[in-house]
Amino acid sequence: MSSIFRPFLFVCLTVFVGTLVMQGPLAAQNGDAGAFVKTLGDKAIQTLTVKDLSEAEREERFRALLRDGFDVKRIGLFVLGRYSRKLSPAMATEYNALFEDLIVATYSARFGEYSGQSFVIKRVAEQPEQSASIVMSEIRPLDGGPPIRVDWQVRGAALDPKIVDVRVEGVSMSITQREEFSAVIKQNGGKVDSLLEALRKKAAKLKSK
């Protein structure tokens, strides 16, 4: 149990600090995926961790960075897996909006907990068969505690880079979300509607807090 839960901590920490990193803005002109992620992360820290920022304002800024730096639609499709074929156009529109809301609600508040961690790019590996790059980074706590490993999968690095997955200590946010979504659908007799319903409820709940 110990070996399992140790990384749990990292996951959470990273998810929120990681969010710092991922919400970066526009591409690096030289097409370097590493520089793109670095710019995005620095911008997120700069704009989202401002003191006395209201939650609503933070969410607004977070959403803007998310849209700039992430291919949310693509991630949403991956997360739905085969079930994405069962979406009608109207449902797809609602799903995209709800999925984005869930990301915003989950990660935006974490920036309010930021306490001076530094964000360092370690190295970039190419994945030519997926036309993607993996940007490996570390988030280092101020107190010299163990750094958190965060890997960013970036597509289209040359022209219009977008992040399509984030892995914290080896845990992929997309894969985790995907397993959760398909479990909700499966438990409700394969109805994709049930997922939309669950997402609406979650959104309402997260908002009321």
Binding site: R74, E129, A132, I134, R167
Partner: peptide, 13 residues
Amino acid sequence: GASDDPIPTPSIS
């Protein structure tokens, strides 16, 4: 953890 190869995740394509 610190493997040199990026983890083979499915491409989101």
